[in-house]
Every structure is written in C-alpha cells, then in structure tokens.
Amino acid sequence: VTLFVALYDYEAITEDDLSFHKGEKFQILNSSEGDWWEARSLTTGETGYIPSNYVAPVD
C-alpha cells in the first residue's frame, strides 16, 4: 500500500471533500477520478476527496 502525505493544509469546499493538515498521511482508495482522489486519513479515519496536487508519496 502506497501512502501519501499532505504537503499543505486543505479546507474542504464541499461535503465530499476531506479537510486535512500538512503532514497528515493518507491511504488512497481511488485515484482514477483525475485530479481529485478518494482517500482515507490515517489520522482521523475519515474518507473523502482530496486534491492530488496537495499530496506526495511517502518514501
């Protein structure tokens, strides 16, 4: 499982989006939707859509 880490803070715009803070880690559930990925936060356990350009793979 490839994990991703937030590079910036993000505040949800719609109820389907997931708010997060810089440094938060995610498991990507679906990355086939283009620039918005469905993800689960490993910090909160919540799922929602995140902007793919706000995250990077964890080394």
Rank of each mutant, 00 (worst) to 15 (best):
V1A: 14
V1G: 14
V1K: 09
V1F: 14
V1Q: 12
V1E: 15
T2G: 14
T2M: 14
T2A: 11
T2S: 12
T2R: 10
T2K: 14
T2P: 14
T2I: 14
L3P: 05
L3N: 05
L3A: 06
L3Y: 14
L3C: 06
L3K: 05
F4K: 02
F4Q: 03
F4R: 02
F4G: 04
F4W: 14
F4E: 01
F4N: 01
F4I: 04
V5G: 03
V5F: 09
V5A: 05
V5P: 00
V5T: 05
V5Y: 14
V5Q: 07
V5L: 06
V5K: 04
A6V: 01
A6D: 00
A6G: 04
A6M: 01
A6S: 05
A6W: 00
L7A: 02
L7H: 03
L7W: 03
L7N: 03
L7F: 03
L7G: 02
L7T: 04
L7Q: 05
L7E: 03
Y8W: 11
Y8I: 07
Y8L: 09
Y8V: 07
D9P: 06
D9F: 04
D9W: 04
D9L: 03
D9N: 10
D9M: 04
D9S: 08
D9R: 04
D9T: 06
Y10W: 12
Y10A: 02
Y10R: 06
Y10E: 00
Y10I: 01
Y10M: 04
Y10C: 03
Y10F: 12
E11T: 14
E11N: 12
E11W: 13
E11Y: 10
E11F: 12
E11M: 14
E11C: 09
A12G: 12
A12N: 06
A12T: 04
A12I: 02
A12D: 02
A12Q: 06
A12H: 06
A12V: 02
I13E: 11
I13F: 09
I13Q: 13
I13L: 13
I13K: 15
I13M: 13
I13T: 15
T14N: 15
T14P: 03
T14M: 13
T14G: 15
E15N: 12
E15S: 14
E15T: 10
E15A: 14
E15Q: 12
E15W: 12
E15I: 11
D16L: 12
D16A: 14
D16W: 15
D16C: 10
D16P: 05
D17C: 09
D17K: 14
D17E: 15
D17F: 15
L18Q: 03
L18N: 01
L18Y: 04
L18I: 13
L18K: 02
L18H: 02
L18A: 01
L18C: 02
S19P: 06
S19K: 04
S19C: 04
S19Q: 04
F20N: 00
F20W: 01
F20T: 03
F20G: 01
F20Y: 01
H21V: 14
H21A: 15
H21D: 05
H21R: 14
H21Y: 13
H21S: 11
H21L: 11
K22G: 04
K22A: 12
K22Y: 05
K22R: 11
K22Q: 10
K22F: 05
K22D: 02
G23E: 04
G23F: 05
G23S: 04
G23D: 06
G23R: 02
G23L: 03
E24K: 01
E24M: 05
E24H: 07
E24V: 03
E24D: 13
E24S: 04
E24C: 04
E24I: 02
K25C: 07
K25P: 05
F26L: 09
F26E: 00
F26S: 00
F26P: 00
F26V: 03
F26D: 00
Q27F: 15
Q27C: 08
I28M: 04
I28N: 01
I28Y: 03
I28F: 03
I28K: 04
I28Q: 01
I28W: 02
L29N: 05
L29F: 07
L29W: 06
N30Y: 07
N30T: 08
N30S: 12
N30C: 07
N30R: 07
N30V: 08
N30A: 08
N30H: 09
N30Q: 09
N30K: 09
N30M: 08
N30L: 06
S31K: 12
S31W: 10
S31T: 14
S31F: 15
S31E: 08
S31R: 11
S31L: 10
S32G: 11
S32E: 15
S32F: 10
S32T: 12
S32K: 12
S32H: 11
E33V: 12
E33G: 13
E33D: 14
E33C: 09
E33S: 15
G34Q: 11
G34R: 12
G34S: 13
G34Y: 09
G34E: 15
G34I: 11
G34F: 11
D35N: 09
D35T: 12
D35K: 10
D35H: 13
D35M: 12
W36I: 08
W36K: 12
W36E: 04
W36F: 11
W37V: 05
W37F: 07
W37L: 08
W37Y: 09
W37C: 04
W37S: 03
W37T: 03
E38I: 14
E38D: 05
E38R: 10
E38H: 15
E38P: 05
E38Y: 15
E38K: 10
A39E: 00
A39C: 05
A39D: 01
A39R: 00
A39H: 01
A39S: 03
A39K: 00
R40P: 01
R40L: 13
R40C: 09
R40S: 07
R40E: 07
R40W: 08
R40D: 02
S41C: 04
S41E: 03
S41F: 03
S41Y: 03
L42E: 10
L42Y: 07
L42H: 05
L42T: 08
L42R: 03
L42P: 03
T43W: 12
T43H: 12
T43V: 11
T43D: 14
T43L: 15
T43R: 13
T43N: 10
T44Y: 03
T44I: 02
T44N: 06
T44G: 03
T44K: 03
T44M: 02
T44R: 04
G45C: 07
G45N: 09
G45Q: 07
G45E: 05
G45K: 05
E46I: 10
E46G: 08
E46P: 00
E46M: 15
E46N: 11
T47P: 02
T47E: 09
T47G: 04
T47S: 09
T47V: 15
T47R: 10
G48M: 03
G48V: 02
G48L: 02
G48W: 02
G48Q: 02
G48C: 01
G48A: 03
G48D: 00
Y49N: 09
Y49H: 08
Y49M: 13
Y49Q: 09
Y49I: 10
Y49F: 10
Y49T: 07
Y49W: 12
I50P: 00
I50L: 07
I50M: 02
I50G: 00
I50C: 01
I50R: 00
I50A: 01
I50Q: 00
P51H: 09
P51N: 11
P51K: 07
P51R: 09
S52D: 02
S52W: 08
S52L: 05
S52P: 08
S52K: 15
S52E: 04
N53S: 14
N53F: 09
N53P: 06
N53W: 12
Y54P: 01
Y54L: 13
Y54R: 07
Y54D: 01
Y54T: 05
Y54H: 09
V55N: 01
V55G: 01
V55D: 00
V55K: 00
A56D: 05
A56H: 08
A56M: 14
A56S: 10
A56W: 09
A56P: 01
A56Y: 09
A56V: 13
A56L: 08
P57F: 06
P57N: 06
P57V: 08
P57T: 06
P57H: 07
P57M: 10
V58W: 13
V58E: 11
V58K: 04
V58C: 08
V58I: 13
V58Q: 08
V58M: 13
D59C: 08
D59N: 12
D59F: 14
D59Q: 12
D59G: 14
D59H: 13
D59Y: 13
D59V: 14
